[in-house]
């Protein structure tokens, strides 16, 4: 009796062990193939583009439809478009996410409808965003082909991602924290700014990074809103070409522009890497401060 008991437990143990090994192998394979594919794409871009890049490329003006010269004005325009996009979309989506999560546990009809409409918004093709932005921001609101129109269009476009990720971030804050804070007699506003937002910060930042990625990668929506002009913009009402529009134009419209297209893609990926690193760094800074203050009060 006793003997057979240990035997079955050994069988179960072996079976457990085998399953453990299988899952481990599966997860490692999946993760490694993702990394492998990504490195494949990145090296492909780097091999075709890195040779073209030097400091002059980053700051000088474009020549001969982009086959010569640099991408200085284009980097500047891209930065400004991104700035407009984030300045508009971050408050809007954090606010929306707060409204969507204001009641813990139960779903209001309002929240449900807002969420549905955002899900539909996420499925709008980028070219439709472009046409809409062109008709609404550029023509109806009279902003013309401008960095402002482009940034606003992109803001509409990243909203679903940014709201979804922010909502997840806020929801992930354990409800006990909020109950505890409420029990201490804190107001909802105070709880939000002192308890919820600091805890949710890393996940909120991840959402912002994801949105920046989406915004930087967008071509079709910008072609019709922020436009094609490769001159240095003097104000937000000037038209400015973004990096991805430049890549598209070089790759699909300018014969012999391929190498420069890849070089520009390298710059774009490098910029993105810098933004990601900066976010991670900032988060570590705030994280450290956060921990030290709680440490002090304990």
């Amino acid at each position: 009796m006793n003997d057979s008991g240990t035997a079955t437990s050994r069988v179960i143990g072996v079976r457990h062990h085998r399953r453990e090994v299988c899952v481990t192998v599966a997860v490692w394979t999946a993760a490694m193939s993702v990394i492998g594919l990504l490195i494949w794409i990145l090296t492909d871009i780097a091999v075709r583009g890195l040779a073209e890049i030097d400091f002059g490329f980053l700051i000088s003006d474009m020549q001969n439809a982009g086959r010569e010269g640099g991408i200085g004005p284009i980097i500047l325009s891209t930065g400004l478009i991104l700035l407009v996009c984030l300045v508009v979309s971050i408050p809007l989506s954090f606010g929306t996410a707060i409204a969507l999560t204001e009641r813990i546990g139960q779903e209001t009809g309002f929240a449900c409808n807002v969420r549905r409409s955002l899900d539909v918004l996420a499925g709008v093709p980028s070219i439709v965003f472009g046409l809409f932005g062109n008709a609404f921001f550029a023509i109806t609101l009279g902003l013309g082909y401008s960095i402002l129109s482009g940034g606003l269009t992109l803001a509409c476009m990243v909203l679903p991602i940014l709201i979804r990720t922010s909502e997840q971030a806020l929801r992930a804050v354990p409800a006990e924290y909020q109950y505890a804070a409420a029990a201490l007699g804190m107001k909802r506003t105070t709880i939000l700014f002192r308890v919820v937002l600091p805890v949710a910060m890393p996940a909120l930042a991840a959402g912002v990074v994801l949105s920046i990625g989406r915004a930087l990668a967008e071509t079709a929506a910008l072609l019709f809103t922020s436009g094609y002009v490769a001159r240095s913009p003097e104000s937000l009402l000037d038209s400015g070409r973004s990096l991805s529009v430049h890549i598209y134009d070089l790759a699909m419209n300018v014969p012999g522009g391929g190498a420069r297209a890849y070089a520009t893609a390298c710059v774009l990926v490098a910029l993105l890497l810098m933004i990601n690193l900066a976010t991670a760094f900032l988060l570590r800074m705030t994280g450290v401060r956060h921990r030290s203050t709680t440490g002090g009060t304990c």
């Binding site: 993760a31 990394i35 990504l38 990668a217 990096l243």
Partner: peptide
């Protein structure tokens, strides 16, 4: 790994 995936998110669809 996380950083690479964040990068993947920002590669333009043209690329």
């Amino acid at each position: 790994h996380r950083r690479l995936i964040e990068l993947l998110a920002g590669i333009p669809s043209v690329v």
